[in-house]
Simulated scan of single mutants.
Amino acid sequence: MITVVITRNDMSDIVSFTMSGHADSGPHGHDLVCAGASAVSFGSVNAITALCKVELEVEMEKDGGFLRCYVPSSLDDVTFEKVQLLLEGMIVSLESIAEEYSSYIQVNDIIGR
C-alpha cells in the first residue's frame, strides 16, 4: 500500500509530504495506482519548480517507493501561497485516487507538527 502523509504546521500550511510503499495493484509496469500517484506527486513537484521557481528539498530512494519533500521556510509570502495552492491541488488529486482505490493508497493529513 502507498501511504501519503501530509504534515502541516499549526496554521494548516503544508510543510512537507511523504509517500512511501508500493500499491501492488497490478504487475510491475502496469500498476495504475502507482502510476497515478507518481504522476500526481512528481507533476506537482515539477510544477512548483517551473511555475514558482522553488526547489523543494527532496529525498528519494533509488528503487522507488519513497518520496519526501519539504517546503523551504524562507519563501516570500506570494511564492509561499502559490506553492501551497499547488500542493493542495496535489492532495485533492491523491485523495481522488484514494477514494477509488482505498485498498492500495491512503492519504493522512497531520496538523501541528
Rank of each mutant, 00 (worst) to 15 (best):
M1E: 08
I2E: 08
T3F: 08
V5H: 02
V5F: 03
I6S: 03
I6M: 12
T7R: 11
T7H: 09
R8G: 04
N9V: 00
M11L: 08
S12N: 13
S12L: 09
S12W: 04
S12C: 08
D13E: 11
D13A: 02
I14K: 02
S16L: 00
S16R: 04
F17M: 07
T18Q: 10
T18F: 01
T18H: 04
M19I: 07
S20E: 12
G21N: 10
G21Y: 06
H22R: 14
D24W: 12
D24K: 14
P27I: 10
G29N: 14
H30W: 07
D31P: 08
D31A: 10
L32P: 01
L32D: 00
C34L: 05
C34I: 01
C34R: 03
A35H: 05
G36S: 15
G36E: 00
G36F: 03
A37I: 07
S38V: 10
S38Y: 09
A39G: 12
S41I: 11
F42S: 09
S44I: 08
V45E: 05
N46I: 12
A47H: 07
I48Q: 05
I48Y: 06
A50I: 12
A50F: 13
L51T: 14
E55A: 11
E55T: 01
L56Q: 11
E57A: 11
V58T: 13
E59D: 14
M60G: 07
E61K: 15
E61C: 12
D63E: 15
G65V: 09
G65A: 07
L67T: 02
L67V: 14
R68E: 08
R68M: 09
C69G: 03
C69V: 14
C69A: 14
Y70V: 06
V71P: 04
P72R: 13
S73D: 10
S73L: 09
S73I: 04
L75I: 00
D76I: 04
D77P: 00
V78M: 07
T79F: 00
F80R: 13
F80K: 13
K82E: 11
V83Y: 00
Q84F: 08
L85H: 02
L86E: 10
L87C: 05
E88R: 14
E88H: 13
G89L: 01
M90H: 03
V92D: 15
V92C: 15
S93H: 07
S93Q: 14
S93L: 13
L94S: 09
S96Y: 14
I97S: 05
E99K: 15
Y101D: 11
Y101S: 12
Y104V: 07
I105W: 02
I105Y: 01
I105Q: 02
V107L: 05
V107M: 04
V107K: 00
D109E: 08
D109S: 12
D109F: 01
I110C: 04
G112H: 05
G112I: 03
